[in-house]
């Protein structure tokens, strides 16, 4: 009895299409942000130790390697933000009666909220 050809599985699926590569990068952005939290905690602990420890830490942060690391961190943070806000209207769609609230509006509202929160935090830090 002739049998069907079995379904194919690929171990390299995540590089086979740009959409999958984007997905992997998006998932990775969570790990990268967690790594940044560690860097942030190191900074806080150097502030806590004060004086020389903090000065040393700042010197380390000024090294080309650390600057490069932070550039990558910013890129991943941006990717994380953009993809997360894009997911909002997917997971929590809103409707007014029969009409769907436009996804762009919901995404925009999130950016506005983020900008507002940033302003408040920065103002609190500066004051």
């Amino acid at each position: 009895m002739a049998s069907p050809y079995p379904r194919r599985r690929s171990r390299r699926w995540f590089i086979e299409r740009w959409a999958y590569q984007r997905f992997v990068l998006r998932e990775l952005s969570g790990v990268v942000l967690a790594a940044y939290m560690v860097l942030l905690l190191l900074l806080v602990s150097s502030v806590h130790a004060g004086g020389q420890a903090f000065a040393d830490h700042v010197t380390t942060l000024r090294s080309p390697l650390m600057i490069a690391v932070h550039v990558i961190l910013v890129l991943f943070a941006l990717l994380h933000t953009v993809t997360w806000f894009q997911a909002v209207p997917k997971g929590l769609p809103l409707r007014r009666g029969e009409e769907k609230v436009p996804p762009a509006l919901m995404i925009g509202a999130n950016y506005v909220a983020m900008a507002g929160a940033t302003v408040i935090i920065v103002a609190a830090l500066v004051a």
Binding site: R17, Y20, F23, P89, K90, P93
Partner: peptide, 17 residues
Amino acid sequence: FVGECSAVCPKHVDPAG
């Protein structure tokens, strides 16, 4: 949530959503 199901759906069902 790879999301490609919704990208290829010819009927805009948006299964990922």
